[in-house]
């Protein structure tokens, strides 16, 4: 497998993981107003399955998760630069997204569900590793 192929593969799994996480939270929020149905349960189960499968394929098997959570002492100077860049970018993306979401919640006078909060926590942990996986072949 060449470098560009593995990078494309990695990007597909990252997109699938993040989209399934967003879908999971969105369907849960939507079902609160539209009413919970069997179809929603089924869609949520499918999203959870995609999330878990793509997480294993894109983050665990590639070593991306381990790389993103490795102790700084175990990283060499290039890896430190990669992690530093990913954390800086992740911070910017996460801040803008969370603040925009909070603004939306405040303007529409909605309540924030536990699923949304948990999704944001998972997203915060996934984001730095996702940026590394997007840019680099780990």
């Amino acid at each position: 497998m060449n470098k560009s192929t593995s990078k494309t593969g990695s990007r597909i799994w990252i997109i699938l993981t993040l989209l399934s996480l967003a879908g999971l939270a969105f369907i849960f929020e939507y079902s609160k107003t539209a009413g919970w149905t069997t179809a929603f349960t089924l869609i949520e189960i499918i999203f959870i399955a995609i999330l878990l499968f793509s997480f294993v394929m894109g983050y665990v098997r590639t070593g991306l998760w381990a790389f993103g959570h490795r102790s700084l002492k175990q990283l060499d100077e290039r890896e430190l630069m990669v992690i530093s860049h990913s954390l800086r970018t992740a911070y910017a993306i996460f801040t803008v997204l969370v603040l925009s979401f909070l603004l939306f919640v405040a303007l529409t006078e909605r309540s924030i569900s536990m699923v949304c909060v948990v999704s944001f926590i998972i997203f915060a942990h996934l984001l730095p590793a996702s940026i590394v996986g997007w840019d680099e072949v780990v």
Partner: peptide
């Protein structure tokens, strides 16, 4: 030299 082998590639 105490780096990851991928760094040698870079």
């Amino acid at each position: 030299i105490g780096v990851n082998f991928q760094t040698i590639g870079y």
